[in-house]
């Protein structure tokens, strides 16, 4: 199913191009412009060349120190939430009920946190974690833990991480569930005939089939957690001190708080570049998946009429070790 070459298709794409270019290209040009200049207010600008970029990547300066520290915190945050959310998401997906009304009920409740405005997610955890009025803070403090996310760095981190797990694990779970649902029953029957253990079924059938959705989930979660702003801003405001100040929070502080246009613009560009690289990986995965999907769609009508669908997966499984 090759697409036909038609340059007139540009007319169909033009509205999208114009709308997005208006809100993406123009502002980005401004950012590039600012990043090369310095300002002392009064709209007077001075040429600064790559000065801000040098400063940004040099940890001994104020700007560089702040950027690299927030970058480090952000990468650590992303690593931690991925390490928790991915396995937990898989476990939750595997725990989904098989059929009946409970499937729908579970889906609805799982999706609920995803649809809550981000600042309200922050508000929910701000209230929930407070030692005086929140259930979590109250219970923890009565169990003997001295938990206070406003003054203690570790508690602030734990709160932000648990909040993110609460907010986004469902996404990983729903994606994995979609991957699991696409596995034909024949695979499981074949595994049963082979006497495969529960773990072997997971390793040889479910995990390979979830490969692609898991990759999508990891990339999505990485990018979103790398850009996180609203939730920690509402809960901790980046504190105590700077302990939960992530890159976006630092950037907004410099740009809209101090109105340091040059520094903020240089930071924006570097920040955007990192996202762009990850985004390219994501794009490659997605488009490969697209061609795969089309190949499967084409192959299906031919494969379906054959009654002997079951023995084939068995053959697929046999060479793998540990299945029998």
């Amino acid at each position: 199913m090759d697409k036909t070459i038609n340059q007139k298709a540009w007319f169909l794409v033009l509205p999208v191009f114009l709308v997005v270019a208006f809100s993406a290209v123009l502002p980005l040009m401004t950012v590039v412009n600012y990043s090369m200049q310095d300002t002392f207010g009064n709209n007077q600008f001075f040429w600064n060349g790559v000065g801000w970029f040098k400063e940004l990547l040099d940890p001994s300066t104020d700007l560089g120190g702040r950027f690299l520290a927030s970058l480090g915190r952000n990468l650590f945050f992303s690593a931690v939430i991925l390490a928790i959310e991915v396995p937990l998401g898989i476990i939750v997906a595997l725990s989904m009920p098989r059929e009946g009304w409970s499937v729908a009920a579970c889906l609805v409740i799982l999706a609920l946190p995803l649809l809550i405005p981000w600042n309200v997610v922050g508000t929910i955890w701000q209230i929930f974690g407070r030692p005086d009025i929140g259930l979590l803070g109250y219970v923890l403090n009565h169990l003997g833990f001295n938990y206070n996310y406003v003054s203690n760095e570790v508690d602030a981190w734990v709160t932000v991480i648990v909040m993110d797990v609460w907010h986004w694990t469902s996404l990983v779970a729903l994606l994995c569930y979609a991957g699991l649902k696409s596995i034909p029953d024949a695979y499981y029957q074949a595994a049963q005939i082979d006497g495969a253990s529960r773990w072997a079924v997971f390793k040889a059938i479910q995990l390979p089939k979830m490969n692609r959705v898991l990759l999508i989930a990891v990339l999505l979660r990485f990018m979103d957690s790398f850009m996180i702003y609203t939730e920690p801003f509402v809960v901790t405001g980046g504190g105590p001190g700077n302990s939960t100040t992530f890159v976006s929070i630092e950037l907004v502080k410099i740009a809209l708080g101090q109105f340091d246009l040059g520094k903020a613009a240089a930071l924006s560009l570097v920040y955007n570049l990192i996202i762009l690289i990850v985004c390219w990986v994501f794009y490659t995965v997605m488009t490969n998946a697209g061609t795969e999907r089309k190949a499967v769609a084409q192959g299906e009508p031919a494969a379906e009429p054959k009654p002997a669908a079951a023995p084939r997966p068995a053959g697929v499984l046999k060479p793998k070790e540990g299945v029998a």
Binding site: S23, P27, M227, Y229, S248, V252, A255, L256, N272
Partner: peptide, 11 residues
Amino acid sequence: MAPAAVYALPF
């Protein structure tokens, strides 16, 4: 995928 924080000021 672009971070909203980058666009806040130019917008």
